[in-house]
Nucleic acid binder design. Structure first.
Lengths: 134, 134
DNA sequence: CGCCTTATTGCAATGCGTTGCAAGAGTATC
DNA sequence: GATACTCTTGCAACGCATTGCAATAAGGCG
């Protein structure tokens, strides 16, 4: 494994982000640190960093990969299709779900990859209000 | 809404598939029915059919869209990252999960979009066997 | 310190999917 | 059946991500 300037930059860029970041956003950010950055290097570096366990990716609601520094504790994400926001699933809720699938199906959920779409509480409420106004 | 030959072909193609199919696979299939098929039309038609509620899409483990004729009952999918297989989540297990998130977080899971990655029962078993052999 | 091995990079080409736009073809109306 | 309206199509260009390949440079070794 070689520790190259390019890899340093990718790591620096992803470290300085708060929460998730998509591949192309990261390419942009790297380019602002070093204009000579090429996309292929960034994407390849991301895979290397993921193999090393430094970063991880999940999929946003549109299926696009979103990267982040690997958190201390693996957690899934919740995406609201109405307002577009996303949240981390709390360790408790996650554990409950993981447990249920393990018991019922023997299926071991990969929490770091878990991404659930739907409608958040406040959007559910406001949608309901709007439909009863008609 | 116009019922054109192109749309007829897309619908025919997706109807004749068993289970899921990715966009590009569907384009190929349409091309075998009509070589003049263009990708943009296929993808646009898929969105129209989805708006009509005829088809729906979810995301495979790699995040790629996978389409299918909308089933009588919405169901999520389970993807094993080890063997690559995928299964439908039974209505019971699905309901349990949906219920849990609604109660705890007020979050309304979109079941038709739910796609969970992890390791299936038999792969978990054989991985375990392999590691204890070392 | 310089050389050698080979991991890594940059480039160019590819694939999937999307979009703007002008040309074309459904559908309704008369 | 002809006409007009406008929804759809096909094309070309684009964006994101990946890959093969030759050139480059990192890091170990003498």
């Amino acid at each position: 494994m070689r520790w190259t300037p390019q890899r340093r930059i990718v790591l620096e860029a992803i470290k300085s982000t708060d929460g998730h970041i998509t591949g192309s956003e990261l390419v942009d950010r790297c380019r602002s640190l070093d204009p000579a950055t090429t996309p292929s290097t960034v994407y390849r570096t991301l895979r290397v960093l993921e193999d090393l366990g430094v970063v991880q990716h999940a999929h946003g609601r549109d299926g696009r990969e979103e990267f982040q520094i690997r958190p201390a504790e693996a957690h899934g994400h919740l995406h609201c299709s109405s307002c577009g926001q996303s949240w981390e699933i709390s360790p408790d809720d996650a554990a409950r779900t993981v447990h249920a699938f393990r018991e019922n199906l023997g299926f071991e959920i990969d929490l770091s990859h878990l991404s659930i779409g739907g409608t958040c509480a406040s959007c559910t409420k406001s949608n309901h209000r709007r439909s009863s106004e008609r």
